[in-house]
């Protein structure tokens, strides 16, 4: 039987070739970003399409770090971290309710949560703008934090539910028999076991908030409260010539995402399937 032998060498070679192609496809754009970011200004045009720069420099990064980008970066960090932290806490409560209780209206709530993931979010961009404006909160970071938190809660809630579902109910019951109140059982037994899940949720939400752009464009028009994507886009349309600096800024924007990505790698499947709809 052919199946018992080794696969044909040509097939094996084809497989590795295909894998190499996928890796190249995934990495090339990022490589290009980094390449131009480290190319000295004077070489950008002459070596615009060379695959390997003849010289490298940190100048672009230095300049970016001395510019407004630092503020944009800070704003984005504030918005994304706050969103992630608040979302994780609130979604943990909801996910716990979904995982541990059977209550009337559960199906309705779950359908409502799914609905929020289906409709074009842009349908609410105008009403949100109006509401935020009438509250006098335009150009403030809290307006973004609250909006992003609400956007991410449904997904995060389902994700947290799947993590809670993985913790046997027996453990809580044992803790309660051992003398814990429900709160103590949560703190001493459930919380330590959910920490990885909580971390993954933080990572997913952070990544989502970090890259959101349309609502940020709509709600923030003053430079001092711009988030990184808005600032970068502004920069592009204002001086669309300084490639090196833009790319360096882009590389900086990539750093937090990559850190969180490395962190949530193990939970990718759970995150994508339980949320099912998140980007």
């Amino acid at each position: 039987m052919a199946a018992l032998g080794r696969p044909h060498p040509a097939l094996v070679a084809g497989k590795y070739l295909a894998l190499a192609a996928y890796v190249a496809f995934a990495l090339f754009p990022l490589y290009w970003l980094v390449k131009i970011a480290v190319t000295p200004d004077r070489l950008i045009y002459s070596e615009g399409t060379r695959y390997w720069p003849s010289a490298a420099t940190w100048d672009n990064f230095r300049e970016v770090l001395g510019s407004d980008f630092l503020r944009f970066f800070g704003n984005s960090v504030i918005v994304s971290l706050s969103t992630a932290a608040i979302t994780a806490v609130i979604a943990a409560g909801g996910g716990y309710a979904f995982s541990r209780f059977d209550f009337r209206g559960k199906r309705l709530v779950s359908a409502l949560l799914l609905l929020t993931q289906m409709f074009p979010l842009l349908i609410i961009i105008a009403p949100i703008y109006r509401i935020v404006a009438s509250l006098g909160l335009l150009n403030t970071l809290p307006s973004l934090i609250v909006t992003y938190t609400a956007f991410n809660i449904p997904f995060a809630l389902f994700l947290m539910q799947s993590f809670f579902d993985g913790i046997p109910k027996d453990l809580e019951e044992a803790a309660m028999i051992d003398g814990c109140t429900r709160m103590q059982a949560l703190r001493k037994v459930i919380l330590p076991l959910t920490l990885p899940g909580l971390g993954a949720t933080l990572g997913f939400v952070f990544t989502a908030a970090w890259s959101e752009i349309l609502f940020a464009l709509m709600l923030i028009r003053k430079e001092e409260s711009m988030t990184f994507p808005v600032g970068l886009l502004n920069f592009v349309s204002k001086f669309s010539v300084d490639w090196g600096q833009m790319m360096a800024a882009g590389v900086l924007a990539l750093v937090p995402s990559c850190l969180f990505f490395a962190f949530i790698q193990r939970y990718l499947v759970q995150g994508l399937t339980s949320g099912a709809v998140k980007g």
Binding site: P168, D170, E173, A174, A175, D178, G179
Partner: peptide, 30 residues
Amino acid sequence: RGRDIAMVFQSYALYPHMTVARNMGFPMEI
């Protein structure tokens, strides 16, 4: 917690993040 009873579960319900000693001492810790 107010009934002063102990229970052994079918799944044992040991706390995975605690050592054997802490598992056994958990009621007293609480």
